[in-house]
Simulated assay, not measured.
Amino acid sequence: MTTTKRRGNGEGSWKKLGTNKWKVTISVGVDINGKQVRKTKTGTKQECMKWFKSNQEISNNDYFYDYAMKWLEFKKNSLAPSTYRNTRTRIKLISDINNFQMNKCSDNTIMLIVNELVATKSKATIVVTISVLNQVLRFARDRGVINFIPYIPKIRTLPIKKKIDIPSIKKIKEVLLLAKFIGGHLYLCILLGFLAGLRIGEILALQKGDIDFEQSTITINKTLTMDENYKTYIKEGTKTNNSNRTIYVNNRILSEVKLYFDDKKFKKNRYLPHESKKVSMFFKQAGFENFTAHSTRHVFITLAQEYGISPVFVSQYVGHKTNSTTISVYTHMPIDKQNQKLDEFVYQFLD
């Protein structure tokens, strides 16, 4: 039995292959050369119907938000949950400014969005939002929904360096002592952030088996993250391949970490979704302005280099792909201290 109809984008043909087994073919538009693109699914009627509905291509009469969300669903399986969430937020931002009809997109449509972003958002937000807009428009162009991509101004991407005031060693000691008094997740995050440069997600994903007390090492190969529905879970692998690492950690630090893992009350319900906010609140109450859990990583990297540890070693230790990231984004050594070190170097050659 065959049921076939000529249909437009988002529709297709159904063919019954046997008892409760179907094959459905759906048109998803045209490629860049104008050739029609189809997708096929074989399975039970229920499976095919579910797939059919999830893969229906929206028409060129639809508005940006609907079209962009369909595009995002097509990409979902290839995106990390955090990337999916962030992209969804950027789609919403664009549609809040101008939820235009796809087949009426023009240069003026895009400039209205860009001008509003420039007037109200930071450069970092502008760059990533325009990137999403560009990807959606290319997707629409390749499938014949729009005939051309309107002009989108290029905004140069620069390393984003947030200014962080590096606290003194004395101040860090005071904060560590206060955090130790509070204990639990808070102390673990601040201890391993300040003294090992770990990301908070890496810290909260640690298991006791990741720590080798004989070799004085910690293996970092997981991270705590959230799915698209903001549910917390442990993901195998860290932020990048370079971030999967085994690092030496001083035994005095490891003895503190061991106490944490031996405390039975922290073995349950460890993976808390808002732990980073609690750390930020702690720093605010301790008098650290604009300080977050991730700021401790910046402090570790800066002070380690200031102490004389090689930037190359520091870069590998914290899991950066390149030394330039370590130096240009994470190092906050004041210019007067750098001048002082330069003087000390130069004076060796002078009488």
Rank of each mutant, 00 (worst) to 15 (best):
M1E: 03
K5P: 02
K5H: 11
G8K: 12
S13N: 14
K15H: 09
L17P: 00
I32D: 13
K41L: 08
T42P: 03
T44W: 04
E47H: 06
S54R: 13
N55V: 07
Q56A: 12
I58V: 15
S59R: 05
N60C: 10
Y63K: 14
F64R: 12
M69P: 02
K70R: 12
L72T: 06
L72F: 09
K75T: 01
A80W: 02
R88P: 02
T89C: 10
I94K: 08
N98P: 07
Q101S: 08
D107T: 14
I113E: 03
E116G: 02
T120G: 04
K121C: 13
S122Q: 11
I126N: 07
V127S: 09
V128A: 06
R143H: 10
G144C: 11
F148G: 03
P153E: 11
I160S: 06
K161C: 00
K163R: 11
I169R: 13
K170Q: 14
K170D: 15
K171Y: 08
I172V: 15
K173N: 15
V175G: 02
V175E: 10
L177I: 14
L178Y: 07
G183D: 09
Y187P: 05
L198P: 01
L198G: 01
G201I: 05
A205H: 01
K208W: 10
Q215I: 06
T217V: 12
I220Q: 03
N221T: 12
K222L: 06
T225W: 03
K235S: 12
E236R: 14
K239T: 06
K239I: 07
T240P: 02
I247V: 13
V249M: 04
V257P: 05
L259W: 02
L259E: 14
F261N: 10
D263Q: 07
K265M: 09
F266M: 04
K267F: 00
N269W: 04
R270Y: 00
R270V: 04
P273Y: 11
V279S: 00
F282Y: 07
K284E: 08
A293W: 01
H294R: 06
H298M: 04
V299R: 00
F300S: 02
L303D: 01
G308S: 10
I309C: 06
S310C: 07
P311D: 01
F313M: 09
F313A: 13
S315G: 10
G319W: 02
T322M: 03
T322S: 15
N323A: 15
I327V: 15
T331Y: 01
M333P: 00
I335V: 12
Q348C: 06
L350K: 14
